[in-house]
Design a binder for these strands. Sequence first.
DNA 1: GTAGGGATGGTCT
DNA 2: GACCATCCCTACA
Length: 287
Amino acid sequence: MAGRKRKLQTETLSSRLKAKVALLGQKEPPVAPVGGNAAPGEAAGDPHLRLGQDFFNQPCITLAKAFLGKVLVRRCVDGTELRGRIVETEAYLGGEDKASHSAGGKRTERNTAMFMKPGTIYVYPIYGIYLCMNVSSEGEGAAVLLRSLEPLQGQPVMRQLRAARRKEGSPQLKDKQLCNGPSKLCQALDIPRRFDRRDLASDPEVWLETDPDAGPAGPRDVVSAPRVGIESHGEWAKKPWRFYLRGHPCVSVVNKEAEKQSGNEMKDTGRQNVQSTETTPCCGNIV
DNA sequence: GTAGGGATGGTCT
DNA sequence: GACCATCCCTACA
C-alpha cells in the first residue's frame, strides 16, 4: 500500500523534475543585479567579495567555522544569481575520523574530490534520491559539509526548484524552509552531481563570497554540536564538529544541550539534537 | 508543533 | 546484500 503510494508520488515527481530542467533554461523572476559577468578565463563574481584559494587552505574545523556567515552564490544559465548565507556546517576530517567517507585514508571514485586541493567541491548522492555538497579543506581527505543556508537572493526560483520534488498542493515553503538541510540547499541552489570536483575558488557557476553586511560571528555566536545522522559511528558521532549560528531560524537541527555548553566548553552532549522548529530569529527577513 | 515511518538507489563490502 | 552525512508525509497531541 505504502509502496504504491510512493510509486505514484515518484511518477509525478519525475515529471516535475523535467519541469525544473525547463525552468532553469527559461526567463526567471527578476532579482537584484549583483556581481558582474566574468570575462573568459576570469573568475566570476565580484573580485572584492569572492573568496579565493587562500581562504579554503585552512584546517577542516577552522574552515567549517569560517564558512559560517559566508555567502554561497549560484549563477544559473540565464545569469540569474541565487545567494544564501551559510549558517550550519559539519567538519569531516578524514583519516582517523570514522564518520568520514575518507576514513582510514580510503579513497574511491566517489570521494576523490575530498583528496583534491582545498576548495574542491564534493557532491555525492545519498539515500538514492538526494545530494549533499562538501568543500575540501587542508588535510588529506578532509572536507566540510554545507548543511544549511539562509536564503538571501532568488527565493522565488529556490521555491520553484524545491517544489519540483514535493507533492502538488503542499503548502508553500517559507523562506527559512528553503535551504535548511544539506539536500535541500542542493535542490534550492540547483547544485547538480556534475559540480563534483569543481573548484569553488575559480568556477564560473558557483562560488563563495564574504558578506559585506554581516558583522563577524564571535565565538559565542557559534554552537558546536555532535554531527547529525552518523549515530552508527560510536565515539566519532559524539565529536562536536557541527557548527551553527546560535538562534538562527534556518539551522536544520538545533541542539539545546550543546547550546548551553557552547561558550563554556562543550563536553559530551549525548543525543540532544532536535529538528529545528521556531527559534529566536537573529535576522529580520526570514518569514 | 512534534514524532514516527517509509522510500530511494548509489556505493561499498 | 546492506548501508546510508535525508526528506517528506501522516497521524496525533
